[in-house]
Design a protein around this nucleic acid. Structure first.
Lengths: 215, 215
DNA sequence: AATAGAACTACCCAGTTGGGTAGTGTGGTT
DNA sequence: AACCACACTACCCAACTGGGTAGTTCTATT
């Protein structure tokens, strides 16, 4: 493991960029491939996409950090992007994660945390500022209050709900699971009863919310 | 902040339970309310639900940790549950988070991490073992490869897709947004085009996957 | 002035869906 | 033997859906 970890920085604020550069350069096993003030200039550098870890600011002139992250991941999925930002609003956080960021740090974090985070990423972790981590976890249990206002689906029902969610009609599903369309309908009625809904749309929505629908 | 943090433990393995108890008792600002070998015995203790933080093992005889967590959160949502487990398979992780756990630690974690995690929870964070954190983040960008195989919806389309997901018919939606049902249909056709689908079911599924549908 | 696009309204039509109701067979209880 | 729940088949019917096609108005572009 004598390999150096290649790091790049995309941050438009010169002061912050230099501070990060200095910080990371001090680590003997890190090598700073480059630091850029925008995604555009970063992409001009062919070596940029060979980075192991890229720290990307979210607020950038031109292509913002979220779109930039998307582009990076599309061009080379192996690059690990850590989002570095002052924004902690839902929209940005989830958009960034959705774009493919593997970590999300608030700039209010102390500098040492950045080093730790890079190492955490290299070890297969996903560093998040505590506040972000909580936000992310909360997105999983948004239903804790009104939760379990439905009955558990059995295997057949789960299967059928999943097929429904793929846009298949009663008839197609019937073919697929060797039942008559009436049989499918029978199960769907039970699904609706258990989920307390009366349309396919609601059933699919609840299916996703309660993670009954895979994929 | 001279308040003591009340902690409880639910762990069936006696050795592990005692180790945790000893560990946590050494912190001056923590007070161990109780340690139990099952959810059942824990719930017998009325004070249990007054805990600030509860460490729950996932594999428990009788009521398992996930169902137990659900029960805890239903009875007192203020209790912060940290899941403590050897299981790192998807099903368990997501089920636990869904149940309302605010942290998820693998037992392979070093002991000091438990103390840190309790403090992190108290500070509004969500401690997760690195491996778990990565898993959780990944669940947000499972589409990074095939990503953006759809066009962005505009405001009206987003609104309509959300209404569709609630099981509303073209007519109901039309009433709600002051359009004719034909107008609604016009937008829905565009939604299907942009999402590259041709049924409501698929549209709703994609809407959830890409987080276009709120709630 | 002509063109093009969006944001609608509108009609046709086959196919799908949801609800109601009813019947069959099988297996398990009492 | 009587009863029941469950998984299914079956039919009716009104409402809804998706696709195709077409017309209107408004606004922006050329």
């Amino acid at each position: 493991m004598t390999e150096l970890t290649k790091i790049s920085i995309v941050e438009d604020n010169e002061f912050a960029r230099n501070a990060l550069s200095d910080l990371l350069s001090q680590e003997k096993d890190f090598v700073l491939l480059g630091s850029y003030d925008s995604c555009e200039t970063a992409f001009d550098e062919t070596d940029f996409l060979n980075s192991d870890v890229v720290l990307v600011d979210i607020n950038l002139p031109g292509i913002n950090g979220i779109v930039g992250t998307e582009k990076i991941k599309n061009k080379n999925p192996k690059v690990n992007v850590i989002m570095l930002t002052i924004n902690d609003d839902d929209e940005n956080v989830f958009a960034a994660l959705k774009a493919g960021a593997v970590g999300y740090l608030l700039k209010s974090e102390e500098p040492g945390k950045v080093i730790d985070s890079v190492r955490e990423v290299l070890n297969g972790g996903s560093p998040m500022s505590p506040y972000i981590a909580r936000k992310v976890l909360k997105s999983f249990h948004s239903f804790d209050v009104k939760s379990r206002e439905y009955d558990e689906l059995n295997e057949m029902e789960t299967k059928i709900l999943n097929l429904l969610s793929e846009g298949k009609s009663y008839n197609k599903i019937a073919d697929e699971i060797f039942l008559s369309s009436h049989g499918v309908k029978y199960h769907i009625r039970n699904i609706y009863l258990k989920l307390r809904v009366n349309t396919k749309s609601e059933a699919i929505s609840k299916g996703h919310k309660f993670r009954i629908i895979k994929k």
